[in-house]
Design a protein around this nucleic acid. Structure first.
Lengths: 208, 208
DNA sequence: CCTCAATGTTGACAACGTCTACATGACTGT
DNA sequence: ACAGTCATGTAGACGTTGTCAACATTGAGG
């Protein structure tokens, strides 16, 4: 199971950053950000407690790398969904990602990591979204309304993801429907005003 | 400035829980949840470091009380907005609350506090929302669509609040508009499908 | 007035993030 | 082949934190 990355009996590890991130990802999903300690990581990686500081200036920077992975994954999933399933599919994919990786999603948007302070993270996060919602609006730069609508669409799926994640949506509201079905139904209650949605959806479909 | 709650030269404090929560609220807004330590609270309250344990079983429980305050405030603001400004006004109020109390909002929805484990919190949170979005749908229980639409509306404003809070909306998208104006414009791009919205809005207007 | 339960204190413990000084050994230029 | 450099890992320390157990104080009720 554990692909022992540690070179036998060697002082140097080989690829500590990746090993740390793998272990961190596991702990993150299992126990959440707050339970993720650097020292536990070093124990699992079989190195000394100060070793991570050769690769990450502090704990938050390691969390930033973890969040960056998440943004890359989500961005990729969104691009695929855009090509295959259009706007509605993108929304369902977004919510699906959040529910499949709840702790990762929380880390990405929870404010624990000050995104602005971590350049690589900032860039991948921007690329994943403003590179999507933004590119979407860039096709009709004259229409501020289209850009606003794309933000509204993003807010809708993001908010639904978060509410479901935190268990704020009463079980009764589900009315026995499957998770995917429920998400689809809720999103289906929304229309966009004034042509903005059609144009946005079209832009997305072309962007593949 | 500081309404010295400490009775002069007295062993007992008088109202430590409230004093702790006041200090905690201040630190929370200024520095965020992660920077809020029990020991710093005790220093500010002028009591010993273990005193809080007479009133809160652990740190998370104190955070839960803090979150409960937030839900009560938000719920109250929503009720007022519902009476005065209808559905759109409720949305703007929701986002306004989040932007006015960003750290409090994060605490309420950030997952640091496991809401289900804190009875009082769970109840006030449920009352503030399921007691709103829920009551809204209860008026037309035959229409599952109306309930779905109310969840979508909640998700929309919640997501917009969170995205703005975390700075995920590019400055360029604001296009120079004021915050309130921007929020209003974004929300205005949304329509509800098939009669669900009208009924929902009507129910809200009556619920005052 | 006496007692007792509620409240606050003291001191301890383990865990953590982070710093500094030191050890190791892989790689590079000769 | 070899010496030296520098990235990488280690050892140990420090201050902070959450939490617990044992003890102290005192306001309120019989």
């Amino acid at each position: 199971m554990s692909t022992s990355r540690r070179r036998k009996h060697s002082y140097h590890h080989g690829d500590l950053p990746a090993t740390l991130l793998r272990a961190a990802g596991k702990i993150l999903e299992e126990e959440g950000v707050d339970a993720l300690s650097l020292r536990e990581l070093t124990r699992r990686a079989g190195v000394s407690h100060a070793a991570p500081y050769r690769h990450f200036p502090d704990r938050e920077s390691l969390l930033a790398a973890l969040a960056a992975e998440g943004f890359a994954l989500l961005g990729e999933a969104q691009r695929e969904a855009a090509a295959a399933a259009g706007l509605r599919g993108m929304g369902e994919t977004y919510v699906g990602f959040a529910l499949a990786h709840p702790q990762r999603f929380r880390l990405m948007f929870g404010g624990t990591v000050r995104i602005a302070r971590h350049k690589a993270l900032r860039e991948v996060a921007t690329r994943a979204f403003d590179g999507l919602a933004g590119a979407l609006a860039a096709r009709s730069p004259e229409a501020q309304g289209a850009r606003d609508a794309s933000i509204a669409a993003w807010a809708l799926v993001h908010g639904l993801a978060q509410l479901l994640l935190e268990g704020r949506v009463a079980q009764a509201a589900r009315a026995g429907r499957s998770e995917a079905r429920f998400v689809s139904d809720v999103l289906a209650t929304i229309r966009f005003a004034a042509g903005a949605p059609a144009r946005a959806a079209a832009a997305v479909d072309q962007s593949a």
